[in-house]
Write a protein that binds this DNA or RNA. Structure first.
Lengths: 362, 362
DNA sequence: CTGTTAGCGCCTTCAG
DNA sequence: CTGAAGGCGCTAACAG
């Protein structure tokens, strides 16, 4: 492998001159430049960016640490990150944590050792002390999707609460009153915020929250299936299910099928996150869709801004809107045809009210 | 950022000793080792792997260049690569080419400059001279999915011809005679091999190939939609469509819906590649599924074997079997209820035979 | 078991 | 506009 010295020798110049031809050609006279370029061509010289990185203390490489790239939501985020990074001349190292904090820490350690210029991180599991750890690092880190405690960090996410609120409102507007939510781990902000949105919509409608219809799991298919089975075992059973992500939704739908229940005839199902990016022929599931691509893109732009030092000192929090797509999996509630939004309306309709809440649902 | 010299100074040893504690602890006496470890701890020392890579001429980084990570097939391959790489202590830089050879070459150049230890490449577009280029490089490269000309390279792929043959046989066994194939670019090996499998199955069944039922496109949804429209415009129109990948299938299904045709009642549809890895609730499409995860895994293992020099000198070609999953999108042909496999059988059933082929279909 | 020397390939400084 | 010297942080090779 020829080095820049070989190029220089062949062109009859000093190595630094060859270097300049590569990195700031305008500072070299045209004839010299030509000779160097010829030498490069003849030798098939390939610049060694590892040496360059060592010298410059910049690798032009970012890292993206996600829970699981196989989830189409993350796939799309990855694509957004990739495109934004490539556009700015950066490469991306991809890592999966599978929600394991140990794996996450191992990845982060290696990434810092490899001197990546910045890290985009979807915190795995609970990641309790991650916030403190991040603040100790000098490498810029942007957090995606899930809030970390003590949030003195840049953060980009979708509107979990708002999206959950929209989905729940949608179900309410279809006349559903008995709505269960199947969510992720209690410590994961998205899981909790989606429950919050659900609660808000129910509260606004004057409905009580029934605790056994709020189930926490681990964002896995198995968990979705189990949680669905659990809420189906309650009496009266819910008329609608809200799955807090796409994977849970799949698990829940499996449980429903196993129970011989049809969607939406017997039960409506709605979910957070779309299933696949455009590869669905006739999308079935009513969802709120987060702008996954944009999330990756914006997060990367924010990270790059930090790298170039052009970002303000204040940490940013970017919340992207989630958009409702009503499809076939949600339909009017068979038992209750009428929407009940407010307590006064409920009373007007002759609903029984107990302790300021509509009875018979909690 | 403390360096290994700082650690050494603090521990009262030479830098090389500190280095040894990191890289081959067993060669250092226990007490010295402890002192060095303490120093590392106290200083919060982080090894600089860029410097290490420069010295060792190994980066422990692989590159994976795919056409589009957003396609769930590639997503799964990526995951297989990731896992195999992580397991062996390697990181993966991900690049998308979007079928652009220019983009591909830009990526490859940078990756070589970054001194990646090996490259996994899904050749973009036609990549005519890629084979020659690869042989010139000293960096090990494993080709995925698509054959390159002059194949003195390691290669891992799914069984395109066999899979296409299976799908076509499946349609034939349902009584279909008028089967169109919608494939990718003529120069892409997978596109051509899938047509070959289709031809073989038809030939075996004694059926003529009708040229306007063999359409070449570019593996895009638009292309799939257009090709479907084109074959639908023929008379008599096909009773079954074979889409040579999942994206084409989606485009074709869109075209069918726009034309008001039901699947499978009016037309059967089968496809190469599954849609999403497990996120489909009730998979609809009959497909042959390539073992995408395993493909990534095997390719990575092969690459790693090359890196460690343990691989034989002979280039390997690994062809993984594709597996048929019969689902709802394919059903018995309405007009012909009976399977015709061989010419003699056809004659026995009173079919008109012209030039040794069954008439009325070509 | 430990240390000295030297150099991986590049680019910043400072001088010509 | 061009060059000489030096060092980024690390680890082989060779002493001791």
């Amino acid at each position: 492998m020829p080095t820049i010295r070989d190029v220089a020798r062949r062109a009859g110049v000093a190595p630094i001159t060859a270097s300049r031809v590569l990195n700031s050609p305008e500072t070299v006279s045209a004839p010299t430049r030509e000779r160097v370029k010829e030498a490069i061509e003849e030798l098939g010289y390939v610049q060694n960016r590892v040496a360059r990185s060592l010298r410059l203390k910049r690798t032009h490489t970012l890292a993206l640490v996600v829970t699981d790239i196989a989830n189409p939501f993350w796939t799309t985020v990855v694509r957004g990150v990739e495109d934004a990074a490539q556009g700015a001349g950066y490469n991306v190292i991809l890592c999966n944590t599978d929600e394991s904090e140990a794996k996450q820490q191992r990845h982060l350690d290696v990434l810092l050792q490899k001197q990546v210029d910045g890290i985009l991180l979807v915190p795995a599991g609970t990641s309790t002390e991650l916030g403190d750890w991040i603040r100790k690092q000098s490498t810029p880190i942007v957090i995606l999707d899930r809030r970390v405690r003590s949030a003195q960090v840049d953060f980009v996410c979708g509107d979990s609460e708002g999206g959950a609120y929209q989905l729940t409102r949608h179900l309410l507007s279809l006349g559903h009153r008995r709505i269960a939510v199947l969510t992720g781990p209690r410590q994961v902000s998205t899981a909790e915020e989606r429950v919050t949105g659900y609660r808000r919509a129910l509260a606004e409608a004057g409905l009580q929250i029934r605790p056994d219809w709020v189930r926490y799991g681990d964002y896995s298919q198995e968990s979705g299936c189990e949680m669905a089975q659990q809420v189906l075992a309650t009496t009266p059973r819910p008329t609608a299910l809200f799955a807090a992500n796409n994977v849970i939704a799949v698990g829940a739908l499996r449980a429903l099928r196993q129970a011989g229940l049809r969607v939406p005839e017997d039960l409506s199902v709605v979910a957070f996150d779309d299933m696949t990016s455009g590869l669905m022929v006739e999308p079935f599931l009513t969802v709120v869709d987060q702008p996954a691509y944009e999330m990756g893109q914006r997060a990367t732009e924010l990270l790059l801004a930090r790298l170039s030092g052009s970002a303000t000192e204040i940490y940013q929090e970017i919340v992207l809107p989630a958009e409702l797509s009503v499809r076939r999996s949600s339909s009017p509630c068979a038992s209750i045809g009428q929407l009940v939004y407010t307590l006064p309306e409920a009373i007007a309709q002759g609903e029984e009210v107990v302790h300021g809440k509509i009875a018979g649902v909690g």
